[in-house]
Amino acid sequence: MHLVYPVVIAAVLFSVGVYGVLARRNAILVLMSVELMLNAVNLNLVVFDMRWADRLHGGQVLTLFVIVLAAAEVGLGLALVLLIYRNRQTVDVDRLRTLHEDREEGARQ
């Protein structure tokens, strides 16, 4: 089996996830895009595990671990999103701008 096909699929899927993270406004959609990126990585791990086929099966085991981590991440992420929603009544990422530089304060210095 040619190694390039699954690997290229994983790369493209990862890029799609990158686009989603950068372009989507809704926090839940951002989370979904993160899941896409994680899955692309998983595909890579499985493919290379099959290629080397060593005794430890590190690739597949790590895939399982990543799946578990993704689940935990989604749980926490959603909790955060809900908290933000409860406080701000919005989950739009580009409207959460508390981090921005205070213009007046900067000008006064």
Binding site: Y19, L22, A23
Partner: peptide, 14 residues
């Protein structure tokens, strides 16, 4: 309005 204004940058980066 599901896409933010960052879309062009996002496309280029991706």
């Amino acid at each position: 309005d599901l896409d933010s204004g960052n879309r062009i940058v996002a496309i280029i980066t991706a």
